[in-house]
Design a protein around this nucleic acid. Structure first.
Length: 552
RNA sequence: GCGCCAGUAGCUCAGUUGGAUAGAGCAUCGGCCUUCUAAGCCGACGGCCGGGGGUUCGAAUCCUCCCUGGCGCACCA
């Protein structure tokens, strides 16, 4: 990040001096091949049109311009079609240790968010049954993304949208009532739509105990159903909150769908749309003109039987979110809802916002395996592996890291046996081990009576080997990884970065004695270096919501 | 039929504003523990980036047409 910024400033002044425009597609990055320099940029090739000369000539101009301007840059080479390969001196990279130790837990924090108000809404599973593993993926994503955005200086609020109105809730109540009647030995017809899980029976039994058989024999049916529905939802919701807590996830706001209906917010939104001529009556129903904003067809908001569609409350909900002052809404949905995205984007535009102010992240369903064998999942049939079971079996850290090591929008095989394994199939241990390993060295130092090393610029000159530089350069990239994750709303960049950093640390550790270094200065400098690596590992793992153990 | 996402090493996956010789781990094979944690390190093997065409200095990346897989296409949620 620091190297990048240093070079970018120089290049920008070159561009300005010549009256050029900074090309959007300019890249400045650490090249894979070390012989291509510490940083490489394609700026010269990007400027050929503006400069009216071939890339290598532009590159030569830039080279002349930068040469000698800052002492940190020791060499600039022109390579290939017109790349500029830039080399920094050792001191520049060593400085990274001071940056990390100076910033501590804040190293990697950025200013790019500018306190922009963002809401992340995630999980939002209907409270009709326990969370399953797919919800876990959304939960890990939403939670980690929140941590990353906050580190990047966005002002983030997290929310769970509770679908506590409508048909699903009625079915839930019916399901419990059906079980109660079954327990009471009544002959009743099995309803078509029914949640069949064991948890329904448990709720039914508990409710029957609490209210007593007499009450169920005497109370009016609608009262009974209301009771069943309410108790079931409360019980299930309680369970969901516990499961999320076990998974290290906590929502700040629980927003109720029925509150929107009761407050009249939906009606207000309807009026707004009608006035803007973005909604109309047809065939006894009330329609949203979503085709005005690129949707395939217009969508019904109020059905001809007078009931509302899911979309109706959803538009009102998003209207409400914007009213609360959020500038960017991030919704995390299961990929099976992707067909819903265009109409929600249309809704956002109908509400007078840019369509970019809603970002929908789709989470592909998780393919749960055990030893390569697929585990069936269906909420209705009650056959599924719950999130709670999985977390209990493999641990929250391993589960979270597995989810966050993949692009969210690609299918994921989650093999329980694999995630339990403490091997490289399971990189969480690889990263955590790097941290534990460093802490172990530090403990060993204490045992040997070596004093904690205070941060000292002079010491760092001892970090002068190629291995030192390699490690330092990767450390310097951590803020870039955070920026990349924040910009693309994809935590997996942080996961990949951590695997790379851990790999470099393991390699470094293997080929360099820390406490057995050649001299005192080198030992102390290496202790500082490792201290800084541990700090970055902690910071990075914290962004994923994964622990950084002191020992393993 | 239409739409969205995907197809990269034997397997699981990175590669998001087009960049230099396409990467990582696992698996396989071969080395490394008397020294700070071997949950580790070093090396080898491994590729028509699904296929064809196009855009340009340059394509896994952009356009187009096919093939395959997943998921959607309700006055369901």
């Amino acid at each position: 990040m620091r190297a990048n910024e240093t070079l970018r400033k120089l290049l920008a002044s070159f561009v300005a001096k010549n009256g050029f425009e900074w090309p959007e597609k300019t890249t400045i990055e650490q090249p894979k091949d070390e012989s291509f320099g510490d940083l490489a940029t394609n700026l010269a090739m990007m400027l050929t049109t503006q400069a009216g000369k071939p890339p290598r000539e532009v590159a030569a101009d830039i080279q002349d311009f930068i040469k000698g301007q800052v002492s940190e840059i020791t060499k600039i080479e022109i390579a290939g079609p017109g790349f500029l390969n830039v080399f920094f001196n050792a001191d520049f990279w060593q400085q990274t240790v001071l940056d990390v130790l100076g910033d501590g837990d804040n190293y990697g924090n950025l200013k790019i968010g500018k306190r922009k108000r963002v809401q992340v809404e995630y999980v939002s599973a209907n409270p009709t049954g326990p969370l399953h593993i797919g919800h876990g993926r959304g939960a890990a994503l939403g939670d980690s993304l929140t941590r990353i955005l906050r580190a990047a200086d966005f002002n983030v609020q997290t929310e769970y949208y509770l679908n506590d109105a409508g048909r699903q809730m009625r079915i839930l109540g019916n399901s419990v009532w059906f079980r109660i009647q079954e327990i009471l030995g009544r002959e009743v017809e099995t309803p078509e739509d029914l949640y069949k899980g064991e948890y329904i029976k448990e709720i039914a039994e508990a409710l029957l105990d609490a209210e007593g058989v007499d009450w169920f024999n005497s109370a009016p049916l609608d009262e009974i159903l209301a009771m069943c529905q309410e108790v079931a939802m409360e019980e299930i919701l309680e369970g969901i909150k516990l499961d999320l807590a076990e998974f290290n996830v906590e929502h700040e706001v629980w927003f109720s769908e029925s509150s929107l209906l009761e407050s009249g917010a939906v009606d207000l939104t309807f009026e707004r749309l009608r006035e803007a001529e973005l909604a109309y009556d047809k065939d006894g129903a009330f329609w949203f003109k979503s085709t005005d904003f690129g949707d395939d067809k217009d969508r019904v908001l109020r059905k001809s039987d007078g009931s509302l569609t899911y979309l109706a409350s959803d538009i009102a909900y998003h209207d409400n979110k914007f009213d609360r002052g959020f500038e960017l809404l991030v919704d995390i949905w299961g990929a099976d809802h992707h067909g819903y995205v265009p109409r929600m984007k249309a809704a956002v535009q109908a509400l007078g916002k840019e369509k970019e102010s809603l970002q929908v992240l789709l989470v592909q369903l998780v393919n749960l395996l055990r030893d390569g064998e697929q585990v069936a999942m269906s909420t209705r049939a009650g056959e599924f592996e719950t999130l709670a079971d999985v977390v209990a079996e493999v641990g929250a850290d391993a589960a979270r890291f597995m989810f966050l090591s993949r692009k969210s929008d690609s299918q994921l095989d989650f093999d329980l046996e694999l995630v339990k394994q403490k091997s490289m199939d399971n990189p969480v241990y690889y990263v955590q081990y790097a941290h534990a390993r460093i802490q172990s060295v530090m403990r060993k130092a204490t045992e040997r009576g070596i004093d904690a090393v205070s941060v000292d610029t002079g010491l760092l000159a001892a970090l002068d080997t190629p291995e030192d530089k390699r490690l330092l350069k990767i450390m310097e990239q951590f803020p870039d990884a955070v920026a990349s994750s924040a910009r693309t709303l994809s935590p997996h960049h942080v996961s990949y970065y951590l695997m790379e950093l851990a790999g470099s640390l393991h390699s470094y550790y293997h080929s360099n004695q820390i406490l057995g270094a050649e001299n005192q200065n080198q030992m102390r400098a290496r202790m500082l270096l490792l201290d800084a690596v541990a700090q970055i590992l902690r910071n990075g793992l914290a962004l994923l919501g994964v622990s950084a153990p002191e020992s393993m």
